[in-house]
Write a protein that binds this DNA or RNA. Structure first.
Lengths: 123, 123
DNA sequence: CTGAATCCTTTGTGATACTG
DNA sequence: CAGTATCACAAAGGATTCAG
């Protein structure tokens, strides 16, 4: 297995993924949904300061792009559950790789600055 | 006091990476620099419609975050070369995973629409 | 609880003109 | 060539309000 980005053909799929995952919360949404299916409110809580409007929008886009599934229980007291689709599960390697890089970055950040300023917390 | 860190702690590195790679061109910049070092103008050309201002800014941020290196040859006719750092090379798995997902997405896009056009035509 | 609709602020990025 | 400075605009996201 070559650890080498094939020279040109690879850039298009990357851009596609870029578009699909573009949005402040999408990657995090997938991250939490990879753990287990979650309801709207639950997601909202574990993501942190996301507005209902934005969360709804990004969930809809992720759904439309086939990464997540939305199940509406259609009860009087609304209950909707989101989960990752098979396609969405293919995002896990990305998340893992991002985690690896992220740790290296945090290590290095002992000396540098740019990101350390605003560490986003959950709740 | 037991600073009990839950499983959510795993999301922090991901968020760090998210911040660092956030920006319309950053991932693509790294992709092209992983192939080989490139000069400013060369990058500008292979990225596509990016303004000098934006490219400069994102390059500076990537440099500050330690992902890329900037070498100024300090000649009369300006020559600057960018390359990925050791840290930047750790982004390659992300790129590869994004490529894999991207291809799956493109496959699926035969049926769906959101991304298939350059700019979203929804609203 | 899970949204939709509206308004508003912030942020990102491009266009243009200019410099060493 | 490799930027910098300024302006302008669009898009993203938040706050608030309303609804089933």
């Amino acid at each position: 297995m070559e650890t080498k980005v094939s020279k040109k053909a690879a850039s298009c799929p990357v851009e596609t993924t870029l578009k699909v995952l573009s949005g402040r919360w999408k990657v995090l949404i997938i991250q939490f949904l990879l753990e287990r299916p979650r309801r709207f409110g639950e997601l909202s809580r574990c993501l942190g300061p996301v507005s209902a409007r934005t969360l709804t929008k990004q969930l809809r886009e992720l759904e439309e792009d086939g990464l997540i599934l939305r199940k509406d229980f259609e009860q009087i007291s609304p209950k909707v559950e989101y989960s990752v689709s098979e396609l969405g599960k293919m995002a896990e390697p990305i998340l893992l790789a991002m985690g690896v890089l992220g740790e290296a970055l945090e290590n290095r950040m002992e000396k540098s600055s740019r990101i350390s300023k605003k560490t986003d917390a959950h709740g």
